[in-house]
Simulated scan of single mutants.
Amino acid sequence: TSEATASILTGLHEGARTYGVPVVGGHTNMRSTHNSLSVAILGRARHLLTSFDARPGEVLIAAIDLRGRWHDPHPFWDASSALCHTEGAARLREDLDLLPGIAEDGLSRAAKDISMAGLLGTALMLAECSGIGMTITLDDIPRPDDAPMERWLSAFPSYGYLLTARPEDARAIIARFQARGITAAIIGQCDMTRRLDIIWDGEKETFWDLARTPLMGFVS
Rank of each mutant, 00 (worst) to 15 (best):
K204M: 14
H47Y: 12
G88C: 09
T18A: 15
I41K: 07
L153K: 09
I41E: 00
I41M: 13
A147Y: 03
W208K: 07
T206N: 10
A117M: 00
Q189G: 06
A54H: 03
R44N: 12
L153N: 03
S32R: 13
S51T: 10
G88R: 12
S32D: 13
H34W: 11
L120P: 00
S7N: 13
M30I: 05
V39C: 01
P75A: 05
A165Y: 04
L215C: 09
A179H: 11
P144G: 05
G202D: 12
H71R: 15
G121Q: 02
P22A: 05
G43P: 01
R31E: 14
A79T: 12
R176C: 10
M134R: 11
F76I: 15
S130Q: 05
E150K: 11
I102T: 04
R55E: 15
V21M: 08
P144D: 08
T213H: 14
S38L: 04
V24D: 00
L48N: 12
G101C: 06
G160I: 00
L92V: 08
W208Y: 05
I141E: 03
T86H: 11
A110F: 05
D72W: 11
G15Q: 04
V21D: 01
E3R: 12
E87V: 11
I182C: 09
R195W: 01
T1A: 15
G20R: 10
A147I: 06
I41P: 04
R44L: 11
A170T: 10
P214C: 08
S158H: 03
T50A: 10
S80V: 15
A123M: 09
H13G: 09
G15M: 03
D146M: 06
E104D: 13
S220N: 12
E150M: 10
I198W: 05
T206E: 08
A172Q: 13
H47I: 04
R17V: 11
L37Y: 09
R31W: 12
C84T: 15
T183K: 02
L98A: 09
R91H: 11
D65F: 02
N35D: 14
L215H: 08
D191L: 06
Y19V: 04
G57S: 10
L92K: 10
D191T: 06
G15D: 03
V24A: 01
P167L: 09
H13L: 14
W200G: 07
D53H: 14
G43D: 00
A54C: 10
L196D: 01
H71W: 11
D201P: 01
A179Q: 13
I199H: 06
M149Y: 04
R166M: 13
I173K: 06
P167Q: 07
F177I: 05
G15K: 01
I114Q: 01
R91Q: 13
G106E: 09
D72N: 11
R46T: 13
L215D: 02
L92G: 07
I182T: 11
I136H: 01
R212T: 06
L126S: 05
C84H: 15
C190E: 06
H71N: 12
